Amino acid sequence: QWIQSKREDIVNQMTEACLNQSLDALLSRDLIMKEDYELVSTKPTRTSKVRQLLDTTDIQGEEFAKVIVQKLKDNKQMGLQ
């Protein structure tokens, strides 16, 4: 999976804004449970939030991952090649 192969780059480069947009999009599509949303959003640092989101992606699967990839594209953060 692309996200896993780029995990380190995503953790380093995903902005707080992109992270929040991803969470909002996942929530609005019922792809993330409120508990998982809280787990991510209550982490103390941006990098720990991104790591938690990516860990959740492993469990949730492809549809979940597609939303995150789309948000990275929207925010022009796909220089993660």
Rank of each mutant, 00 (worst) to 15 (best):
E8Q: 04
V40I: 15
T47K: 13
K76L: 12
I59L: 15
Q60F: 07
I32E: 02
T42Y: 07
V69E: 11
V50N: 02
I10V: 03
T47E: 15
D74S: 08
E62W: 00
L39R: 14
V50H: 02
V40K: 06
K66E: 15
A17I: 04
V40W: 00
S28N: 00
Q13V: 11
D24F: 02
S41W: 06
E8A: 08
E16M: 11
T57S: 15
L31M: 10
T15Q: 12
E62G: 05
L31D: 06
Y37M: 01
T15P: 06
R29E: 12
L26Y: 01
L31I: 00
Q52V: 04
E63A: 11
L39G: 08
Q52S: 11
V67E: 09
Q21F: 02
V11Y: 01
E63P: 07
D36G: 05
Q4C: 01
V40F: 06
I32F: 01
E38H: 13
G61N: 13
Y37W: 10
D74G: 08
V40A: 05
V69S: 04
K76W: 08
K49L: 01
M33T: 15
A65T: 01
I59V: 11
D36E: 12
I59T: 10
I10F: 01
V69Y: 10
K76F: 10
W2Q: 07
Y37V: 07
L27E: 14
Q52C: 10
F64Q: 11
L27N: 07
Q21R: 09
R46F: 06
N12R: 14
S22D: 07
D58H: 14
N75Q: 13
R7K: 14
K49E: 04
L39Q: 08
L19F: 01
L72E: 09
I32W: 06
Q60N: 08
K6F: 15
V50L: 01
N20H: 15
T42N: 12
P44R: 09
S28C: 09
K49Q: 01
E35M: 02
A65E: 06
V67F: 00
F64E: 12
E16D: 14
M33Q: 15
L39E: 14
K34F: 11
E35L: 04
I32T: 04
Q21E: 12
D30Q: 13
N20Q: 12
I32D: 00
S22R: 00
I68W: 00
Q70H: 08
F64D: 11
V11K: 02
S41Q: 15
L54G: 05
I10T: 02
T47C: 10
K43A: 12
N20F: 14
V67P: 04
A25I: 08
A65S: 06
D24M: 02
S41D: 06
T15I: 00
T15H: 00
E8H: 01
T56Q: 13
K66I: 02
L23F: 02
V69T: 10
S28A: 14
Q4M: 15
L72P: 05
W2M: 07
K49D: 07
D55Q: 09
I3A: 03
W2I: 14
D24G: 02
L26P: 07
A25T: 11
P44T: 09
E63C: 05
T45D: 14
Q60T: 07
S5A: 12
C18P: 09
I68N: 06
K43C: 10
E38D: 15
K34C: 11
V11A: 06
M33Y: 06
S41R: 14
T15R: 00
S48H: 06
D24L: 04
K71T: 15
D24R: 11
K73A: 12
L53P: 07
Q52Y: 02
T45H: 04
K73W: 10
T45L: 02
N20V: 09
L19C: 01
V11G: 05
S48P: 03
D55W: 06
N20E: 04
T15K: 02
R7L: 05
T42C: 12
S28M: 10
Q21C: 06
K66W: 02
T45V: 04
R46M: 07
Q13P: 01
C18N: 09
Q70W: 03
V11R: 05
E16W: 07
K71P: 05
M33R: 15
Q21L: 08
S48A: 14
V69A: 07
E35Y: 05
R29V: 03
L54F: 00
Q60D: 02
A25V: 12
S28T: 11
E63D: 09
E16G: 01
R29C: 07
V50C: 10
F64T: 12
L72Y: 02
L54W: 00
R51C: 09
T15A: 03
K34S: 10
N20A: 13
N75L: 12
Q60E: 13
Q70E: 15
Y37D: 06
E63G: 06
T45P: 04
Q52M: 07
L23Y: 01
D30I: 00
M33E: 14
K76G: 14
V11L: 08
L72D: 01
L54V: 02
D36C: 01
S5K: 11
L31A: 04
P44W: 06
V69K: 08
D9Y: 12
K76A: 14
D55K: 06
K43G: 06
E63F: 00
S41P: 04
E35I: 00
R51W: 01
T45Y: 00
K34E: 14
N75I: 07
D36R: 02
L27Q: 09
S28R: 12
A65H: 06
R51A: 12
G61L: 05
Q60I: 09
S22V: 15
D55F: 02
V69P: 05
S41F: 12
T56V: 15
V50Q: 04
E16F: 05
K73Q: 14
E35P: 09
S41V: 15
R7H: 03
N20C: 04
M33I: 13
D58A: 14
P44N: 11
K43E: 08
T57D: 09
E16C: 01
T47F: 06
Q60K: 08
L19P: 09
E16T: 11
S48W: 01
V11M: 12
Q4F: 11
K34D: 06
N75C: 11
T45F: 03
E35K: 14
T45G: 08
